[in-house]
């Protein structure tokens, strides 16, 4: 799951950057809102989940780990 998330983040942001699992992907500026929204859509598709707008928060998406935890919650 973590590697898929990493791949989606780099593709959506159009960058070649190896995100660490606990790296703050949002505050580094590597991902802006436009790429984040694209990334979220790609995550929805990849993991076959629907991410409600109200759950698109900093807490849920700040790092690869946070995203993985959040998605696990959704899938279960």
């Amino acid at each position: 799951m973590h590697s898929k998330i990493r791949e989606i983040l780099t593709v959506s942001a159009g960058i070649k950057h190896a995100f660490q699992d606990d790296e703050d992907v949002l505050e580094t500026g590597a991902i802006d809102s436009m790429s984040a929204v694209r990334a979220i859509a790609a995550l929805e598709e990849a993991f076959e989940v629907k991410i409600p707008a109200v759950e698109v928060t900093y807490e849920n998406f700040q790092s690869v780990n946070a995203i993985a935890n959040y998605l696990k919650g959704l899938i279960d």
Binding site: I31, D32, S33, A36, V56, T57, F61
Partner: peptide
């Protein structure tokens, strides 16, 4: 804070 805090502070503001 919720519910207005989004992914980035710029996005929240926007």
């Amino acid at each position: 804070k919720a519910p207005f805090q989004l992914l980035t502070s710029l996005m929240s503001t926007q």
